[in-house]
Amino acid sequence: MNTATTLRIRRPLALAILVTLSGCGGGGGGGGGGGSSDGTPTLAQRIAAAQSVAQTSADCQQIRPFYWEIGDASGKLVSGSFAGPLLTIDADTVLPIASASKWIYGSYVVQSQAGVLSSQDVKFLNFRSGYTNFSVCGSTPADMTVSECLEREGRDGGTNGEYVPENDGFFVYSGGHMQKHASMNPTLADLDAAGLATEMRRVLGTDIAMSYSGPQLAGGVETSASDYALFLRKILGGTLSYERAALGTHPVCTDPDTCPQEAKFTPSPTGEQWHYSIGHWVEDDPKVGDGAFSSPGAFGFYPWIDASKSWYGVVARVSLVSDSDVSVAVDSVRCGREIRAAWLKPNTQ
């Protein structure tokens, strides 16, 4: 049984987003794995533990429908799909990934510059540049460019490209940093959404299918879990070797409660002290963090690579009905990291 439905979802201040929904999602995969005399978990143990958590965890049950998978540089090792009352999401469902786009742009910069970043690059990519008035590109014509998006009305009046001097040097989570950074790149400044996708794929891999709903670097990508997983596997396997080396580099404190002299706004989970690297988070809270690298999106898409750079994972979902975009992202993080913890240490579950 396999049905396909096309759903157009609308929300205020966003473009219409085309989402392909596939019925009757599949279960997990994987195979056997030999144990080790030093107590290293077998592949079968990891798979069973991750599947159990994905199925039974209260944090995971509340975010249904969603698709998840875990793998390594060689490919997917286990996956699952849990349907909701209206739809099912699978590996090939194309979704708006919101801020998971940031990891893609950060990797593009790192790869295209062979891992050599200027101090200015770093300041823009770990969100301390002062360009923090960005809202969205709005209902844009198809040929609007990266630079033209900056001319649209910003969050607090003015334009998307307005510099806020009092925020310069402080971590402020905003798409404006990346939009302004891209506008200063002659290769990117005059690209529309289609051209932007072509350029990202040229550097990151033409085998990765993605598009942009608008010329918005930090939040405009639409792709599937399988294609984002391919991107993560390229990092793990060294095809994107400069990005692999850059994971976790140039980290900055993001929690205003912990470091008010360094940070003003963060959407990370309340009470947790994460750091921000080059277009991605480092989940290194001293109490609950495991050092994973990630890029949660406001609609619930949550990709990650573990601290050892051995495994990747994706939680794919889309939720456009919450009063808080932050809560949608955090809900996916909580489910995803429980699955990750089960995978890494199945014997403790």
Rank of each mutant, 00 (worst) to 15 (best):
Q55F: 10
Q55D: 15
T56W: 09
T56E: 09
T56H: 12
S57Y: 07
S57T: 03
S57R: 05
A58D: 13
A58R: 09
D59R: 12
D59C: 02
D59E: 09
C60E: 03
C60K: 07
C60V: 04
Q61G: 04
Q62D: 10
Q62E: 08
I63Q: 07
I63L: 05
I63E: 05
R64I: 01
R64Y: 00
P65S: 09
P65G: 09
P65I: 06
P65Q: 06
F66H: 01
F66C: 02
F66T: 03
Y67D: 05
Y67W: 04
Y67A: 00
W68E: 05
W68D: 01
E69G: 00
E69C: 01
E69Q: 08
I70N: 08
I70M: 11
G71R: 06
G71F: 10
D72G: 14
A73H: 15
A73M: 12
S74R: 03
S74I: 06
G75L: 04
G75Q: 10
G75W: 11
G75D: 08
K76G: 06
K76L: 04
K76I: 02
K76R: 12
K76W: 02
L77Y: 02
V78I: 08
S79E: 14
S79F: 09
G80V: 00
G80C: 06
G80N: 03
F82M: 13
F82D: 13
A83M: 10
A83T: 15
A83H: 13
G84N: 05
P85Y: 08
P85S: 14
P85H: 07
L86Q: 15
L86A: 15
L86T: 13
L87C: 10
L87D: 11
